[in-house]
Design a protein around this nucleic acid. Structure first.
Lengths: 128, 128
DNA sequence: CGGTATCCCTGAGGATACTG
DNA sequence: CAGTATCCTCAGGGATACCG
């Protein structure tokens, strides 16, 4: 099994480095599309209902929200709970996997923040 | 300045969480497209010439390699060095920023690897 | 060797309207 | 309230050929 194998082996060249790429791609595929990060961040703050997410995340359409929530649910990062079937109340929240992913996102944010500071100083960039 | 401000403030709601998203997006934008990660990993192993990258990274076209290298160079993750102008020899390598980004990519890889193990056990997924 | 130029195609995502 | 359905646009990326 590749995931176990590459922990043990020495990297000889780029061909072997390729097995390093797949799990990173997995992460990017799971959070990289336009709305996934806003959804995860919103749910990281607290559980939300569909409409709440729609209002919080400016510009998202119900179509995209629905699709992205399904993706996230399929990937076990988000759980969907029908809390009151009579009133059609649905709540979305992070799974344990979703919560653990927040650590990685935090690492990305810290690097990204630091990067912005450095690059802005170097190049006289303006904040968007 | 936002990047300094949000380090100091408490998060009250999702609207403030949004400033958390931008630096993460920066990272995804810099490494998320199809070929950036393979290029960075190859260059993380050692400096490469244009043709070497073209051969190492299966399926990439010179057009895409050229474009992605320019992006990476623009973002200061990769440096281009003309090592021998007479023979038109060009070498690409990681900058210090590029090397520091590898730590983040490593965090993503570790999480992604762990995720695959868990999810595969749960769902009887097959490795692609 | 280290790239550009042209043309093309697919799929992510937007707009709008509608439903159980 | 919590979504679907339809239609449409545009940019990321592929194929191929060519250049200094």
């Amino acid at each position: 099994m590749v995931v176990e194998k590459f922990n043990k082996m020495a990297i000889k060249d780029y061909q072997e480095c390729k097995v390093y790429i797949r799990p990173v791609r997995d992460v990017i595929d799971m959070i990289g599309s336009k709305w996934k990060l806003p959804i995860l961040v919103a749910l990281g703050f607290k559980d939300h209902r569909f409409n709440e997410l729609e209002r919080q995340i400016q510009g998202i359409t119900p179509r995209m929200l629905s699709r992205e929530l399904k993706d996230l649910e399929f990937n076990k990062l988000v759980k969907r709970v029908v809390s009151c079937p009579d009133d059609n109340i649905v709540k979305y929240g992070l799974t344990e996997e979703g919560k653990s992913l927040e650590q990685v996102i935090t690492a990305m944010r810290i690097w990204g923040t630091d990067y912005r500071k450095k690059i802005m100083k170097k190049n006289d960039f303006e904040l968007r």
